[in-house]
Amino acid sequence: MKMPMQQCLVDDFEVIDNVHLGEGWFRLDIEAPSIASTARAGQFVQVRIGSTDDPLIRRPFSIFDVGPEPGPDATMLRLLVQRVGPGTTAMMQLSAGDRIHLMGPLGHPMPRPSLGEDGVLLLIGGGIGVAPLYFYCRELAAEGSPLKHQVLLGARSSALLIGIEAFHKIGVETHAATDDGSCGFHGNVIELLEEKLASFSDLGQVSGIGCGPHGMNLALRDIAIERDLDFSISLENYMPCGFGACFGCVIEGPADQPLRYRRVCVEGPCFPVRELPEKF
């Protein structure tokens, strides 16, 4: 699969707002019409943090939303960020008027499954993985897509179910799973998915896109392979460049072609589960 030759911008942009969401999470609103107007759900931007050599390499962030509405008139780019290290700590300190250096949009958009009238698309997210799923729902709404979809979100506890209100606000059927049972299903999102799948009489009418922590992604792949489900998983590998030049972010091919290394940045970041190896 070749990346379409989409213009990619490398520039600095103005931060319009930095909304702290608690638990070390925040949302950056950036005025970046040149990126926002062409970005599609599932694509990402590479953020350069600071102007020194530490950190040296850009960090990839999925696009969380564009505004006011997805499409050619979008001017605002929104990123959902979780503070984990020095880079994201620096990003958390950005405020309105500051500049942020972005490269993007990069990677392929998430796929649009072709499902019948009774088909349902399940969007399964954990942690920061909710970001591209929200953009995906926003795109479906903006297009007036008839694709039926539900969101399954997992977190350790209700306080960490970041972004769930955002899904509620746009009227998407959303189900939560928390490890401690403080909100929704008591258990992890994979167990919730299993329960959900049991309610469908024809699994051929179910499709799914997952994006979450490594453990969740592995479990999701196993379930989808075991039941022969048409699922895709969006990966977040360490990417030295993000645009295909370095061959540093590769994953192995499926079990029968382990040496068919593919670059997550340009051939992904979303892959059909049947193309993923057992461990990735």
Binding site: D54, L56, Y238, P240, C246, G248, I251, E252
Partner: peptide, 20 residues
């Protein structure tokens, strides 16, 4: 050549360690 198994790169202080 297929290249080396992942992970193929990691950042170190002001440097990039790779094994492509």
């Amino acid at each position: 050549r297929t290249g080396n198994p992942p992970p193929r790169a990691i950042e170190t202080p002001s440097g990039l360690l790779n094994s492509i």
